[in-house]
Computed example of a mutant assay.
Amino acid sequence: MTNQPMMETMGQWRVTVWEEENFQGKRCEFHMECPNIMERGFRRIRSVKVENGPWVGYEYPEFQGQQFILEKGDYPRWEAWSGNTGYRTEHMLSFRPVKSANVPM
């Protein structure tokens, strides 16, 4: 099995985040992890659109707190990623792509 070209690997993950619900307010697109969205001038993340790859969102900066698995699709409000659990958080403050090794069979 050959290694993937760098451009193909870089395009493997893409997520767009918005500061407000329903894809409103400040927005930014990411292709790699973001340990603290507040360092990018955001107060919080309230809606997400995953274009490529699976991601994990976290309640707090530095990948701390409640974790949320984000697969390809739209997440217009916090209920879309937090589900019906007893523990609810209305925002995310950090996120990163899920990377896995390709193991030859």
Rank of each mutant, 00 (worst) to 15 (best):
residue 3 N to I: 12
residue 6 M to V: 07
residue 6 M to Q: 05
residue 9 T to K: 14
residue 11 G to F: 08
residue 11 G to W: 04
residue 11 G to Y: 00
residue 11 G to A: 07
residue 15 V to H: 05
residue 15 V to W: 03
residue 17 V to A: 08
residue 17 V to K: 02
residue 18 W to R: 03
residue 18 W to A: 05
residue 18 W to C: 05
residue 19 E to N: 11
residue 21 E to F: 00
residue 22 N to L: 08
residue 22 N to R: 06
residue 23 F to R: 01
residue 23 F to M: 03
residue 24 Q to Y: 14
residue 27 R to W: 01
residue 27 R to F: 00
residue 27 R to N: 14
residue 29 E to S: 10
residue 32 M to F: 06
residue 34 C to V: 13
residue 39 E to N: 10
residue 39 E to H: 13
residue 42 F to K: 01
residue 43 R to S: 15
residue 44 R to P: 02
residue 44 R to W: 02
residue 46 R to M: 06
residue 47 S to Q: 05
residue 47 S to H: 04
residue 47 S to P: 02
residue 49 K to E: 11
residue 49 K to D: 09
residue 50 V to P: 04
residue 51 E to N: 10
residue 52 N to F: 02
residue 52 N to M: 00
residue 52 N to S: 00
residue 52 N to I: 00
residue 54 P to R: 12
residue 55 W to R: 03
residue 56 V to T: 11
residue 57 G to I: 01
residue 57 G to D: 01
residue 61 P to L: 00
residue 62 E to P: 01
residue 63 F to D: 02
residue 64 Q to F: 08
residue 65 G to E: 08
residue 66 Q to N: 10
residue 67 Q to D: 07
residue 69 I to Y: 08
residue 69 I to C: 10
residue 71 E to Q: 09
residue 73 G to H: 15
residue 74 D to G: 00
residue 75 Y to W: 07
residue 78 W to M: 08
residue 78 W to A: 06
residue 78 W to K: 06
residue 81 W to D: 06
residue 82 S to C: 11
residue 84 N to I: 15
residue 86 G to S: 14
residue 87 Y to H: 15
residue 88 R to Y: 13
residue 89 T to E: 03
residue 90 E to N: 13
residue 91 H to T: 06
residue 93 L to F: 03
residue 93 L to S: 02
residue 95 F to S: 03
residue 97 P to H: 08
residue 98 V to G: 01
residue 102 N to F: 14
residue 103 V to W: 12
residue 104 P to Y: 09
residue 104 P to L: 10
residue 104 P to D: 11
residue 104 P to H: 11
